[in-house]
Simulated scan of single mutants.
Amino acid sequence: MKPGNDRLARRVEQQAKRMQRAERERPTLLAQTVYLGSLGLMFILPVVGGVYLGHWLDEQLAGYSMRWTLSLLFLGLLVGAFNVYWMIKSHE
């Protein structure tokens, strides 16, 4: 064989192995669904927790107020967005 043919054969073999490995390691539909569900929970749980805690705190104070509810809602949104960002960055 000529040296050029030998290099070409090695490159084709490497690419074939890479394609086979990519096919084996491709995430399944179930794995993708679990990942998206986890992202959703990581966003929603701080929001719901913040609203629940804020509502409870507002009920403990005299008079009608939504100060704690709204404040902890926005804090939950920030925490949830950070959680999603962090999970996506760490998953790459």
Rank of each mutant, 00 (worst) to 15 (best):
residue 30 L to R: 15
residue 75 L to W: 01
residue 67 R to K: 14
residue 16 A to N: 13
residue 71 S to Q: 09
residue 45 L to C: 02
residue 34 V to S: 05
residue 87 M to K: 14
residue 55 H to V: 00
residue 11 R to W: 09
residue 88 I to N: 01
residue 15 Q to F: 10
residue 73 L to C: 04
residue 65 S to W: 06
residue 30 L to N: 10
residue 75 L to V: 15
residue 12 V to N: 09
residue 15 Q to Y: 08
residue 51 V to N: 05
residue 51 V to Q: 04
residue 8 L to C: 03
residue 52 Y to E: 00
residue 59 E to Y: 06
residue 86 W to H: 10
residue 48 V to H: 00
residue 58 D to M: 03
residue 90 S to D: 13
residue 43 F to R: 05
residue 72 L to N: 04
residue 61 L to V: 12
residue 40 G to T: 03
residue 32 Q to N: 15
residue 48 V to P: 01
residue 27 P to V: 09
residue 91 H to N: 12
residue 45 L to V: 15
residue 71 S to A: 13
residue 68 W to Q: 09
residue 46 P to E: 02
residue 13 E to F: 06
residue 42 M to S: 13
residue 35 Y to H: 13
residue 12 V to H: 07
residue 31 A to K: 12
residue 4 G to M: 09
residue 64 Y to M: 14
residue 90 S to V: 08
residue 3 P to D: 10
residue 45 L to D: 00
residue 91 H to E: 13
residue 50 G to F: 08
residue 68 W to K: 00
residue 13 E to M: 09
residue 63 G to H: 03
residue 57 L to F: 03
residue 46 P to L: 02
residue 39 L to H: 04
residue 36 L to C: 06
residue 91 H to W: 10
residue 77 L to G: 05
residue 70 L to I: 13
residue 30 L to Y: 07
residue 82 F to K: 06
residue 79 V to H: 01
residue 21 R to C: 02
residue 42 M to V: 13
residue 64 Y to H: 15
residue 65 S to E: 09
residue 18 R to P: 01
residue 73 L to S: 02
residue 5 N to W: 05
residue 50 G to D: 06
residue 36 L to A: 11
residue 43 F to K: 08
residue 37 G to D: 00
residue 26 R to W: 01
residue 90 S to K: 12
residue 40 G to S: 06
residue 64 Y to P: 11
residue 46 P to C: 06
residue 16 A to R: 15
residue 52 Y to W: 07
residue 9 A to I: 11
residue 81 A to W: 08
residue 47 V to I: 15
residue 15 Q to A: 09
residue 21 R to N: 12
residue 75 L to H: 04
residue 52 Y to I: 05
residue 23 E to R: 13
residue 72 L to Q: 03
residue 67 R to V: 15
residue 90 S to Y: 07
residue 91 H to F: 11
residue 78 L to H: 00
residue 81 A to R: 04
residue 26 R to H: 08
residue 66 M to E: 15
residue 69 T to K: 04
residue 11 R to L: 14
residue 73 L to W: 08
residue 87 M to S: 11
residue 82 F to C: 07
residue 90 S to N: 14
residue 25 E to N: 12
residue 71 S to N: 07
residue 79 V to L: 11
residue 49 G to N: 03
residue 85 Y to A: 14
residue 68 W to T: 05
residue 9 A to P: 01
residue 41 L to D: 02
residue 39 L to P: 02
residue 10 R to S: 09
residue 24 R to W: 08
residue 76 G to C: 06
residue 44 I to E: 07
residue 8 L to S: 06
residue 26 R to L: 10
residue 78 L to D: 07
residue 5 N to P: 03
residue 68 W to C: 10
residue 35 Y to I: 05
